[in-house]
Every structure is written in C-alpha cells, then in structure tokens.
C-alpha cells in the first residue's frame, strides 16, 4: 500500500519535471526576441546585446536550462518582460485568490446542483423531474460557457440588474455568483447524469435488497448506502475539476472581468511576455498533476476495493 503511494509520488515528480521541461522548450519557440523586448524598441544593438548577456541568453541552452531549474527550486519564476520590474511569482500569487475563489465556487455549484438532481432523477426515473433534469443536463453539456455567461450577464445583470455587471468588488462573493455558476454548469450537468446512472446500478444490487429485507427505513438506505456509494467516483472527479479550474479559466475570467490567473495567462500570451507565459502555463499544469496525485491517493482511502487491489 505505502509502496504504491511512493511509486505514484515518484511518477508525479517525473510528470512535473516533464511539464517544466515542456514549458522551457515552449519559451524558446515563442517568436519573440526577449532581449529586444526588455530593452525596448528604441534600444541600440549594443544595449540589446548587454541585456541578452544579463538574462543569460548568450549562454548554451543546457546552461540556461540548468539555471532555469535552479531558480524554480527556489520558487523564482523570473521577471516579467512587459510589466516592468514585477516578478512572475508575485503576479501569479496576486491573481490566484480570485481564481481560487472562482474555482471553489464552481465546484460548489457542481455539487449543489449535480448531486441532488442526479439522486432525485434516479429515484423517480421517467418522472417529469427526470425528463426535465435530462434536458437541462443536455443543455448544460452543450452550451458554450462563454455564451452562457454572456446570456446570464444580459438578463440577470443588465436587464434585471440583480447582479453586478462585471469586475470584482466588495463583497467578493456577490461578484462571483454568476461566474462560478457559469463555470459549474457543465460539471453539474455531467455529475447529475453520472450520479443517476450509478444510483440506478446500486439500487439493483443485493446489499440494498438485504437492507430493505431487514427493515431498514428507505431514508436510511438512501443516505447510508446508496448516496455514499454513488459519491465515491464523484468526489475524486471533483478534485480533478478543482485542479483544472485553479489553472485558470480564461474565458470566464475574461467575460466577467475577473483579474485571475487565466486573465494573466491570456494577457501574457497576447503581449508575448515569455516568462509570464511559461510561469502561468507551468503553474496550471502543476495544479493538475498534484491534484490528480491527491485524488488517486484519496481514492484508496475512500474506496476499500481499490485499496485491496493496490495493496497486492
């Protein structure tokens, strides 16, 4: 068991290392001359060359890669080319709370819509609610989030002035309701379908029959056996969603004007701010890799069957 966790951990480190390397290669592919960008358009060739020397760009690729890794270990992601004198790490840390708020909100919406909808639909299959939930899920899965977000802004913010139009302010939660809802709709739709299918399977299994036969009340069966069983896959996938959302949800941040990591990444890509691109993309990928490790390990604790399989 613990051997498996260690192997999985080493595998995670390997993937993180690969991701970091990919990001480094990527920075080389960006069609921009970093020294020229830092020096400014009017700088003389000599000044550009001296900045290239300062940035270490005149050294060999391997030596640059080595110092890149060395700086990373100390949490140094470099200095932005475009935002004068700001470090990439501080910019990401400044944007992260907004994205984290949004990401957690998105996951909460997924849970409070997706799970009850799936449970009710499974308990009353082919009922009016079940059909309504199916239709809603189909819509939620197919509607592009940016379109859905704009529609919500149009009706709820502009027409009926219920929510603020865009941007962030105080209290933050008020500004996050619509964006996090937009973020969560797709997942809510997906989970409602998944929970419904799982519960219908669980309801047919012998241990539920047994619980009924020994006279356990339906409500207890529902909460103690059925829902608990159906939630195992959902919990792990929610973890993956959180990792994915933390990497920045650039479209939703952009239409709602939230200064999060996604906006930062998109802005840096538009201005070809190479260290910022590398930094944001790398951070996003690392969130995913780490979350998937946590989820995998958590899975073995939540589901005894997995633990037994992996223990061997």
């Amino acid at each position: 068991m613990s051997g498996w966790v260690i192997r999985r951990f080493l595998q995670m480190i390997l993937v993180v290392f690969g991701v970091v390397t990919l990001a480094f290669v990527f920075a080389f592919l960006v069609p921009a001359n970093p020294a020229r960008m830092v020096a400014g358009p009017q700088a003389s060739p000599a000044a550009v060359a001296s900045i290239a020397h300062q940035l270490g760009l005149d050294r060999s690729t391997w030596s640059q890669y080595w110092s890149f890794l060395g700086r990373l270990v100390h949490g140094n992601l470099g200095i932005s080319f475009v935002l004068q004198g700001r470090t990439v790490a501080s910019e990401i840390l400044r944007a992260l709370p907004y994205t984290a708020f949004l990401a957690v909100g998105g996951v909460i919406w997924e849970v409070i819509i997706g799970i009850p909808a799936g449970v009710i639909a499974a308990y009353k299959p082919r009922s009016f609610f079940d059909r309504f939930a199916t239709l809603g899920a189909l819509f939620g899965l197919s509607a592009p989030p940016f379109w859905l977000g704009l529609m919500l802004i149009y009706f709820l913010s502009y027409r009926w002035s219920i929510f603020p139009l865009n941007g962030v302010g105080s209290p933050l939660i008020w500004y996050m309701i619509l964006p996090s809802f937009t973020l969560g709709v797709g997942g809510a739709a997906f989970y409602s379908r998944m929970v419904r299918t799982t519960i219908l399977q669980v309801l047919r299994s012998p241990f539920i029959e047994f619980a009924r036969l020994k006279g356990m009340p339906e409500r207890t069966i529902l909460f103690r056996h059925v829902v608990r069983h159906a939630l195992i896959p959902v919990v792990t996938m929610l973890g993956m969603d959180l990792g994915y959302f933390l990497g920045g949800v650039l479209i939703i941040e952009s239409i709602f004007g939230i200064p999060g990591v996604g906006q930062l990444a998109f802005a840096s890509i538009s201005t070809l701010d190479v260290p910022m691109i590398t930094g944001t993309v790398m951070v996003a990928a690392i969130f995913m890799v780490v979350m998937s490790f946590i989820v995998d390990v958590a899975y073995t604790f939540i589901d005894p069957r997995v633990r037994l399989n992996r223990g061997q």
Binding site: Q11, L14, V15, G18, V19, L22, F26, L29, V30, P31, Y244, G247, G248, L250, I251, G262, A265, F266, I269, S270, L272, I277, T280, V281, A284, A285, I286, M288, V289, S292
Partner: peptide
C-alpha cells in the same frame, strides 16, 4: 504514456491558446 500524462496536465484551452501564440 508519461508523455500523454504531461500533455493531459495542461488545461486544454490554455494549451491551445499558448500554442497559437507560437504558431500564429
């Protein structure tokens, strides 16, 4: 498969946006 894992760990839209920045 580790290569696949690496590509999978980039959020897909961010990955596309970054690649477009390189390729135009």
């Amino acid at each position: 498969m580790r290569l696949t894992d690496m590509v999978l760990s980039f959020p897909i839209l961010l990955f596309c946006v970054a690649l477009i920045a390189v390729t135009g």
